[in-house]
Design a binder for these strands. Sequence first.
RNA 1: GCGCCCGUAGCUCAGUUGGAUAGAGCGUUGGCCUCCGGAGCCAAAGGUCGGACGUUCGAAUCGUCUCGGGCGCGCCA
Length: 578
Amino acid sequence: MHIRKLLEQRFQQAFQQAGAPADANPQLAPAGRPEFGDYQANGAMAVAKSLRQPPRALAQKVVDALDLSDIASKVEIAGPGFINITLHDTWLGKRLDGALSEAHLGVEPAAQPQTMVVDYSSPNLAKEMHVGHLRSTIIGDAVVRVLEFLGHRVIRQNHVGDWGTQFGMLIAYIEHVSSGGAAQLSLALEDLEGFYRNAKQKFDAEPAFADTARAYVVKLQAGDAHCLRLWQQFIDTSMSHCERVYERLGVTLRRGDVKAESAYNTDLPWVIADLGKQKLLRESEGAQCVFLDEFTGKDGAPLPVIVQKSDGGYLYATTDLAALRHRGSELRADRVLYFVDARQSLHLKQVFAVARLAGYVPSTCSLEHLAFGTMMGEDGKPFKTRAGGTVKLMELLDEAEQRAYVVVSGKNPELSEGELRAIARSVGVAAVKYADLAKNRINDYIFSWDQMLALDGNTAPYLLYACARINSIFRKGELSDTHFTGHIRLEHPAERKLGLALLRLGEVVEAVAADCNPNLLCSYLYDLAGLFMQFYEACPVLKAEDATRSSRLLLCRHTAAVLQRGLDLLGIETIAQM
RNA sequence: GCGCCCGUAGCUCAGUUGGAUAGAGCGUUGGCCUCCGGAGCCAAAGGUCGGACGUUCGAAUCGUCUCGGGCGCGCCA
């Protein structure tokens, strides 16, 4: 159990003995200032109010009832009724010894593991992956890793777009190119983006081709074998491209996590029929709609959720409903998380509302849209290439590696070319991912090479450097595992601060799991790296003697482990040197 | 017109869900090398938290209004 939870339990008991209701929240938090100790309980003021008692008097009763003698060296009341707790140095040392001996670094699995369905990445397979897919992919993957680390059952759902109207056009174009032979086709498919562009061009220029394309959409949806075969060929090529991107990004999505739009194809008529049976449908201008009172449009009239077009075709709302039913009723999710652009928030609200109304998800199932803002260039406008096109992820990563190479080789020219290349590969990807993860999801995000590759501040290079620096201590000391013995003793203030921070990993990871905000973990790791630098500055490690030396070595080792684990949870790999 | 999101140091961003004197990095200024990686550490300066009113012991955080910016709003996804 992490420290805050432990204190919470002790305080809850004490609050009850002091006359507070059973559900009173002691409001435990890390201390806001060093002079307030290590943790503070802020709940006395609120509870005193509901009990109509003077807050300081209640705080005193709580402290009287509280028994922290085994873990705290000081408990005092301050200000209007804050209760400040200072923990025993020796107790902290023992906690650290214990945490260090575990693979999970003292983080306990969730008491009640849940089933989490996580919808992220979900690119459209008609084109190459581009920057628009980056945030969902990176943030979603980090949250997935955190949830799994806490022992939850995570079901990834890569809801790729493989079934829109563009696919008729692409199939027709495949057929056109194949007339030049199989080799011609595989060559053409190597450049997916170019393939799409050429198909579109032909579509716009040649009415006959456009007619064929439109006819193929219908044939495809009717299950025509020829069209399906061509379609499958295209999908396979495009999926392989996505997998190369995932591989390079270090994203955990695999082929088995794909649950494409087309997978719900046969459910769509059922959804319409079922909504009809439940009297939720109303026809409007020829389309089948669900009207919800809580959503109104331009003239104040209820806004429809169109689930079937007047021509009988289905829309993405229909597919999303089918997906929600699958996730809620078949996968039995406790939480369904959508890492989707903020611009889709109305759409998702509507779909969630319809799904609940129709009973497609249990009422206990939490549906969450984890929205994120748009990626902007440094000019504050949507991030584009110089020519104004969308930035492909592969090209973005190429540039990241090149720029990382320049930075790393400039700072550490004695490394070999091979080492530099390998380091640049890691640093480049890490910089791109970390810059995204470190920011609050909901704001638009300004993409800046200089900032993400900076060696100072809350960046991947700074954290990777901190890891490398710790490693170099071990290298320099020529230490093997047998050297890491003894116990951690927190004597110097810098050691104490570092040790206390190391014990907070569990609190932070739980907060990330609750809010799906990986930036909390980034801030924590950055703070931790800063505390380590301060410790390292103030406390000689290799030059220290006996028990102090082994204690400090253990602190270094634990810091390295927490940094490495934390970065791993963010989907970022660490490197031995840089 | 209606709805959602955002306004925090010159710039880029935090702020643990209502807690004590609002924090980092960059940039600016000034310190620290008998140093285990100085890619570091310490310190200074920089703020009416867009504005107003309200809720209460207490507001960057909650409510109402207002100004500014972004996005969305019937058969694309």
